[in-house]
Write a protein that binds this DNA or RNA. Structure first.
Lengths: 231, 231
DNA sequence: CGCGAGCTTGACGTTGTTCAACTAGAGTGG
DNA sequence: CCACTCTAGTTGAACAACGTCAAGCTCGCG
C-alpha cells in the first residue's frame, strides 16, 4: 500500500467524480486540502468492515469490489466499482464505522477524503447534499433488485443477472477479460463456487455465453435476459 | 379510503415525526399547507409499487408493511412501520416512482406530504437534509443485515431474526398480538408459508416461543439469539 | 520440473418447495 | 340456528434445488 501524494489538484483533476462537479472552486480547494492519493495492489483492502470510517474513497483507476463479510467466512459482493466513483458508506454520520469491506480487484488508485470534509459540504452546499441523497437512492433501488434476484430467483436466474450486470454496467461490453474469480461470481450471486461453475457450464453448453478462464463473452443476450426474467 | 382533513396543524402536532423537529415554525407551516391526513382500513394500499411518487407518508396511528412485489406474485417484506415514522422511497428525486408498495396491516392514519415540499426543505435546510441522509443510512445498514440473514442463514436462523425483529424493534415486548399473518412472516424471511409454519412449530416444541393464532410469546430469547447467530 | 491456487466434475446428502389434503374459525344467508 | 363458504393455518409425502465433500485438473510461476 504505497502512498503517493501527487502534485495534481482537485481543481484541475480530470478524474473528478460527478458528485464533485456541484462544488465551487473554494469547496474543491477544501476537498483538495483534505485528501490523499493512494495506490493499492490487486487484492489489498481499502476499507475493512468494522473499522472506523474516517475517510471516503474515490476510485480513480483500477477496479474494486464492495462486499459484506457475513457468516462462516462467506462474503456477499454488493457491487464492483470502477473509475470514477465515490464510495461512502452507511456508517457516515451514524456510527462512523464501515459496514462493508472494499478491496482492490486490480491495481487501483484512489483518493481518500476526510469524512468530516464531506459532512461540511453536506451542511453548506444543499445541491451537494441533494446529489448525495440521489446517489444513495439509486443504490437503494439496485439493492431492491438484488433482494429479489437473490431471494426469488434460482441459480440460473441469478447467474444471468450477474452476467448482465457485468456486461451492461461494469464492463459495458459484450465480451470482457476480468480479474473477477469464480468465487467472486459465487459471492455476487449468493451460491457456492461449485454451483456457479455448473451454471456457467450449462450456459456455455447452450451457447448463451463463452467463458474460458478470465475471458467472458455474451453470445445470446436475449436468452440471458429471458432467464433473468423467469428466475 | 376515507379522507379526513383535521383542524389539527403540524405546528402543534403531538404525533410529529422526529425528522420534523429540525424544522422551524415557518417551515412547519409550509409542510402543513402541503399535507392531507388520510385514514386507511386494514388491508388497503397506501403506496403501490410502480406508481408515481408524488407524496411521502407519515404514519400517525396503526401499522403498515413495506414490501417489494417480486416474481410470481411473491412479496418480500422490507419492514413494518409504526407511529410515528416517515416513509419516503428511493425513487424520490430520481425517477419519482414508488419502488415498493406500502399497505395497512391495521386501520391506519397517515399524513401525506407533497414530495416537492420535502425537496424544498432538503435544499433550504441543511440539517433536515443531513438527518434524511442519516435516516437513509440507518435503513441501508439494516438492509445489509437483511442481505446476510436472507442469503446466508437457513430457515431457523431467518425465523429467529424475524421474531427478534418483531419483539425488539416493532412491538418492543416479549409477547404481542399482531395482525401479521404466517404468509407475512414467510414474506419477511423469504420462504414459503408452509416452511415458516414448520419452523414456528419446531420453536414451539422446543419451548423457545409460544405462538397460537395471532398471539406470539418469546420464551427463550437467548436460544433465539443463538439460532440467529449460528444461522 | 514441480508446486500451488483456482477451476472443474461427480456422487451424495440436506434443505426447502410443491402439492394435496385436511382443520378451524369467521362471516353470510336461508 | 344451521348449513355453506371462504380464508388462514396446518400437516405429510414426494420431489427438486442446492450444498458438501472429495478427487482430479490446468496453468502460471518459481
Amino acid at each position: 500500500m504505497a502512498l503517493d501524494e501527487t502534485k495534481q489538484n482537485c481543481l484541475n483533476c480530470t478524474m473528478r467524480a460527478e458528485l464533485f462537479s456541484f462544488l465551487n472552486p473554494e469547496e474543491l480547494a477544501h476537498v483538495d486540502r483534505n485528501r490523499i492519493q493512494v495506490k493499492y495492489r490487486a487484492g489489498e483492502i481499502i476499507f475493512k468492515q468494522g473499522t472506523p470510517l474516517t475517510h471516503i474513497a474515490c476510485v480513480t483507476s483500477g477496479m474494486v469490489k464492495i462486499y459484506i463479510e457475513g457468516l462462516n467466512e462467506r462474503n456477499l459482493i454488493l457491487k464492483f466499482v470502477k473509475p470514477v466513483e465515490f464510495i461512502g458508506g452507511p456508517g457516515m454520520g451514524v456510527d462512523n464505522i464501515h459496514h462493508f469491506s472494499v478491496s482492490a480487484l486490480e491495481d487501483t488508485t484512489s483518493c481518500l477524503i476526510n469524512a468530516t470534509t464531506i459532512k461540511d459540504l453536506i451542511e453548506t452546499n444543499s445541491t451537494f447534499a441533494l446529489q448525495l441523497l440521489k446517489k444513495n437512492n439509486i443504490q437503494s433501488m439496485s439493492n431492491f433488485e438484488k433482494f429479489i434476484s437473490l431471494t426469488q430467483k434460482q441459480m440460473p436466474g441469478r447467474i444471468a443477472d450477474a452476467l448482465l450486470y457485468l456486461s451492461n454496467e461494469v464492463y459495458q461490453a459484450s465480451s470482457f477479460v476480468t480479474n473477477i474469480s469464480r468465487q467472486d461470481l459465487a459471492d455476487l450471486t449468493a451460491m457456492t463456487k461449485e454451483s456457479a461453475i455448473r451454471i456457467l457450464k450449462d450456459f456455455k453448453d447452450n451457447k448463451y455465453i463463452n467463458a474460458e478462464g478470465s475471458r467472458f463473452e455474451m453470445l445470446n443476450m436475449d436468452a440471458l435476459k429471458h432467464i433473468s426474467r423467469i428466475g
